[in-house]
C-alpha cells in the first residue's frame, strides 16, 4: 500500500515521525532500529545558546499520560549542527528541526543557523513550550505575537515552516489563522496541555517546576478536536500529534485532517513504537476502506 505523503518541502515515505523532545537527536533510538524506516524525524528543540533546563523531578506519570517540565535543555543550535546532525546524515529520512527561543531575535538566530545546513528540510517553530519562564508559550497564546514570530522566522529561512501550536488557548482556530496568514507553510499540533500533580505525602507539586506539560493518550481527544476545528476553517497541511500509540490512532488523526503524524510519549513506553505503527498502518487503512494514506486525509469531515 502507498503510505507516502507529500507536505510542503517534505516527501515522506510514510506519515510517521517521532515528535520533538521525545527522540533526542535520534542517536539513542538508532540503536534499536534503522531510522530509515521513519517518515521523518523531528529533533529536540534548539535554542541559540545551550540551556540546562529545569531542576528535577522533571516528569510525573498521570492516568494514561505524563507531565514533563524538561525546560528545553539542549546544547545550543551550533553544537547541534556540529555534533548531533552529522550522525543523522547516513539516513535518507528528512530532518525537521524544532526552533525555540525566549525572544523573536533568538528564534531568528536559530532559524538562520539551520539555514546553513542542507540536512534540515523543514523547521518546526516551537511557540508552545509551556515549561520555560520566557518566550515559548507566550508566543503561542497571543495571535499577534504568534503572527509576528512566524513572519520573522519565515523571512530567515528558505525551508518550509511548520508552526507548533499550543492547546492552552480558548480559540485554536484564531491562532491557526494568525500564523497561516503570517506565512506558515503548515501547522504542527498539538503541544502539551499544562497540568500539575501534587504528592499526598509531601503536599507539594511532584514536578520541581510545579507545572508541566501533559502528554500521552489522555490528550488525544483534545488533539483530534483541535485538528478537526482548524481543518474546518483553514486549508493548511497539519502534522498531528497528541497521544498516538497505534495505527488506529494514526487513522483517527488523518480523518480529523492531519496529513502526517508525530509520535511522542509512546516512544518511552515502547522504543519500537514508530516502526511497529508503520508496519500496522496498511492493514488498518485497508480494514477501514482506504487504499492509501492520502486517501484518508480529512475524510472525517462530512459536507453538511
Amino acid at each position: 500500500m502507498n503510505l507516502s505523503v507529500s507536505l510542503p518541502g517534505l516527501k515522506l515515505k510514510n506519515p510517521i515521525m517521532p515528535a520533538s523532545g521525545c527522540f533526542g537527536f535520534g542517536a539513542e533510538y538508532s540503536k534499536f532500529y534503522d531510522l530509515n524506516q521513519l517518515g521523518a524525524i523531528i529533533i529536540k528543540a534548539a535554542t541559540a545558546e545551550a540551556r540546562y533546563g529545569n531542576p528535577t523531578p522533571r516528569v510525573a506519570e498521570t492516568s494514561a499520560g505524563m507531565l514533563n517540565a524538561i525546560g528545553l535543555q539542549n546544547p545550543g543550535v551550533d553544537n547541534i549542527i556540529a555534533n548531533e546532525l552529522p550522525a543523522l546524515s547516513v539516513y535518507d529520512t528528512p530532518i525537521i528541526a524544532n526552533v525555540a527561543g525566549s525572544t523573536i531575535e533568538e528564534y531568528e538566530m536559530v532559524a538562520k543557523a539551520f539555514k546553513n545546513t542542507e540536512q534540515v528540510e523543514a523547521l518546526e517553530l516551537n511557540i508552545s513550550c509551556p515549561n520555560v519562564k520566557e518566550g515559548g508559550v507566550q508566543f503561542g497564546t497571543d495571535p499577534y505575537l504568534a503572527s509576528e514570530v512566524t513572519k520573522r522566522v519565515k523571512a530567515q529561512s528558505d525551508v518550509p515552516l511548520y508552526v507548533k501550536l499550543s492547546p492552552n488557548v480558548t480559540n485554536i482556530v484564531e491562532i491557526a489563522n494568525a500564523v497561516a496568514k503570517a506565512g506558515a507553510d503548515g501547522l504542527s499540533m498539538i503541544n502539551t496541555l499544562t497540568g500539575m500533580r501534587i504528592d499526598l505525602q509531601t503536599r507539594k507539586p511532584i514536578i520541581a517546576n510545579k507545572i508541566g506539560g501533559l502528554s500521552g493518550p489522555a490528550i488525544k481527544p483534545v488533539a483530534i478536536r483541535m485538528i478537526y476545528q482548524v481543518k474546518q476553517q483553514i486549508d493548511i497541511p497539519i502534522i498531528g500529534m497528541g497521544g498516538i500509540t497505534c495505527a488506529e490512532d494514526v487513522l483517527e488523526f488523518l480523518l480529523a485532517g492531519a496529513n502526517a503524524v508525530a509520535v511522542g510519549t509512546a516512544n518511552f513506553e515502547n522504543p519500537f513504537i514508530c516502526p511497529e505503527i508503520i508496519a500496522e498502518l496498511p492493514e488498518v487503512l485497508k480494514k477501514y476502506g482506504f487504499s492509501s494514506v492520502e486517501d484518508a486525509i480529512g475524510k472525517g469531515h462530512i459536507n453538511e
Binding site: 523532545g21 533526542g24 539513542e28 522533571r58 516528569v59 505524563m66 514533563n68 518511552f268
Partner: peptide, 9 residues
C-alpha cells in the same frame, strides 16, 4: 522518562 538518554528527564 525514556530510560535510554533521549528525553532529558
Amino acid at each position: 522518562g525514556c530510560g535510554v538518554g533521549a528525553c532529558f528527564a
